[in-house]
Amino acid sequence: MRLSEFWRRMGEAFGPAYARSVASDQVVPQLGRTVDDALRSGVDATVVWRAVAAAYPDRVPSRLR
């Protein structure tokens, strides 16, 4: 997954402003760090997205999983 697609999905799931907050402030359990930290360290965007979807099943619609 390209980063542009990752951020599009984040924006759709959380809204643009809250998506940035989730990415920078919330530690995703499956990653053991924030989204921003994971992406910066080279974790594939698809892996990060799947971790986000698992951590926020009530926010991420099934069509985006």
Rank of each mutant, 00 (worst) to 15 (best):
R59T: 06
P16K: 10
V27P: 02
D25R: 15
M10V: 00
S62H: 07
P57Q: 05
F6K: 02
R9V: 04
V28M: 10
A19T: 08
R8P: 00
R8Y: 09
P57F: 08
V43E: 10
V60L: 02
S24Y: 05
F6Q: 01
R63T: 13
G42E: 06
V35Y: 05
D36K: 13
R9L: 15
G42I: 10
R8T: 04
Q26L: 13
D25G: 03
L64W: 04
D58W: 05
T46S: 12
A51F: 03
V28R: 04
V52M: 03
M10A: 09
A17W: 04
Q26M: 12
R8M: 08
L64C: 07
Q30I: 00
A23T: 08
L64S: 04
P57C: 07
F6M: 00
L39S: 04
G42K: 09
D37F: 02
P61Y: 05
W7K: 06
R20D: 11
G42T: 10
V22S: 07
P29I: 06
G42H: 09
A19H: 06
V48Y: 03
F6W: 10
G15P: 01
V48A: 02
A45S: 15
M1F: 08
S41Y: 02
D58R: 13
Y18Q: 14
D58T: 09
E5W: 03
G15K: 09
D25K: 15
D37A: 15
A51M: 05
D36R: 14
L64Y: 06
V27Y: 10
S62E: 15
S24H: 12
D25L: 13
R20P: 00
R33V: 04
A55Q: 12
D36F: 05
Q26R: 13
E5S: 12
V27H: 08
P57T: 10
A54N: 12
W49K: 04
A54F: 02
L39Q: 05
D25N: 13
G11D: 15
Y56H: 15
R65D: 06
A53V: 12
L3D: 09
P16M: 02
D36E: 15
P61E: 13
V48K: 01
L3R: 13
D44T: 00
R65G: 06
S4R: 11
R50N: 12
A55E: 11
R65N: 10
A54Q: 13
Y56D: 01
V48G: 02
T46C: 04
F14Q: 08
G42Q: 09
P57A: 06
P61V: 13
G15E: 01
P57Y: 08
L3F: 08
E12M: 12
L39M: 07
R63V: 14
Y56I: 04
S24G: 11
T34D: 11
A53T: 09
A53R: 09
V60M: 03
L64D: 04
